[in-house]
Computed example of a mutant assay.
Amino acid sequence: MNIAIFGASSKLSIELIKQLSEFKITTFGRTSTNIYFNAEDLSSSSIATLNKVNYDTYIFNLGFIQSKRLLDQEDKDIYKSLCINALFVIKSCEYILSNNSKARIFIIGSESGKKGSFDTSYFLAKSMLRAYTKERQLISPEQQLLLISPSTISDGKMTTDRADVDTIARYKKQHPKKRFLESIEVASFVADIIKNPSTYLCNTEIELNGGKFSRMTY
Rank of each mutant, 00 (worst) to 15 (best):
I184Q: 14
G63R: 00
D164A: 08
I108T: 12
T167R: 11
L71Q: 12
A131M: 11
K134I: 12
A191E: 02
D192P: 00
I3H: 07
I3P: 04
K212H: 06
S81A: 14
E74H: 07
S43W: 03
N34G: 04
G29V: 01
L145C: 14
T204W: 04
I206S: 11
E142M: 10
S151G: 13
L20E: 07
S149V: 03
E15L: 03
Q174W: 05
F64V: 06
G210V: 08
M158L: 15
K11W: 00
F28H: 02
S140I: 06
I153R: 04
S140T: 09
S198H: 04
S9T: 11
S13G: 03
L129T: 10
F6L: 08
K80H: 12
K134G: 13
N34Q: 14
A169F: 11
R30I: 08
L16Q: 03
K102L: 10
L181D: 01
S32K: 15
I168S: 09
K173D: 14
L138A: 10
E205H: 07
I194C: 03
G63A: 10
V186M: 00
K178H: 15
K157P: 00
N34C: 09
V165Y: 08
S151F: 14
R30D: 09
E207W: 14
F60N: 01
L145M: 13
L208E: 08
N51Q: 00
L62V: 01
R30Q: 12
I5Q: 11
Q137G: 10
I105E: 00
E40N: 15
T159R: 01
A86N: 08
S154I: 07
I90Y: 06
F88Q: 09
R215A: 13
Y95R: 02
K76P: 04
N100Q: 05
L71R: 09
Q66A: 10
A191P: 03
A131W: 05
G29P: 03
S21G: 06
